[in-house]
Design a protein around this nucleic acid. Structure first.
Lengths: 129, 129
DNA sequence: CAGTATCCGCAGAGATACTG
DNA sequence: CAGTATCTCTGCGGATACTG
């Protein structure tokens, strides 16, 4: 874990898997939803809304594998499975909070930049026609 | 930009595009490489190492569109194009720095969790055979 | 040097149906 | 309720070749 991760420009690439997790379309959403406490599978599904079972299961597996969430099964007659954040998962809330703050504060700037860029690009495509 | 982004659990989804950027396989890498100052296209390519032209161009376009980097063309005989971070792009260095810190500090924990999870899962698959 | 254009393979992701 | 299994389609991402 100390070497063999410098394949890019000399910067430590241990961050790459974390970036991948953060970039995961659903992972952050699930973590955020779990922030307030344990949530059952279908409740999670309902909260997120548009996610498919397959993706939710897949995402939860990944998070569980990375030690970010725990899966607790209550062997009741209607099966009841609760997911909750591990301390590691909770600690992740901090950096993604920073990210969310940045996103919130600069969303307009980015949107404006996009409009400006598209205004510069799209008309050319139309004019070429 | 004030409404119509609450499709998930009531949390503002303006962060989603930012998350997508961060999650972009190459975007963060490019931004980090640009942190020290303007870099030319091929230098960028060489620094990153394994990226294809297509992806580098694509990534740079996206970053430019989002107002994170600027593209400056010097009309010399051998074309010279420099990319550099905008103030917005530089401000992004902060949250991803937090993220990198977290990644660095918890990489071992995550790796251990993975090993434990796989040790729990893989043998079952082998035992079933 | 700095791209653009084209083709292709593979993984991500949704829909659906079935099980314990 | 909480998944697993299968099928499929989209689009990311790489390799290659060509252009200004």
């Amino acid at each position: 874990m100390d070497a063999g991760h410098m394949d890019v420009s000399g910067r430590c690439q241990r961050v790459a898997p974390v970036l991948a997790r953060i970039g995961d379309k659903w992972a952050v959403l699930v973590v955020e939803t779990l922030a307030d406490g344990p949530v059952r599978f279908n409740a999670l599904k309902r909260e997120i809304g548009v996610i498919s079972q397959r993706m939710l299961t897949f995402t939860l597996r990944g998070l569980e594998r990375d030690g970010l969430v725990t899966r607790t099964v209550y062997p009741t007659v209607p099966p009841r499975v609760e997911y909750s954040l591990t301390p590691l998962g909770q600690s992740l809330l901090e950096p993604i909070g920073h990210l969310a703050r940045w996103a919130h504060e600069h969303a307009e700037e980015m949107a404006a930049a996009r409009l400006a860029f598209d205004a510069e690009t799209v008309p050319e495509a139309e004019a070429a026609e």
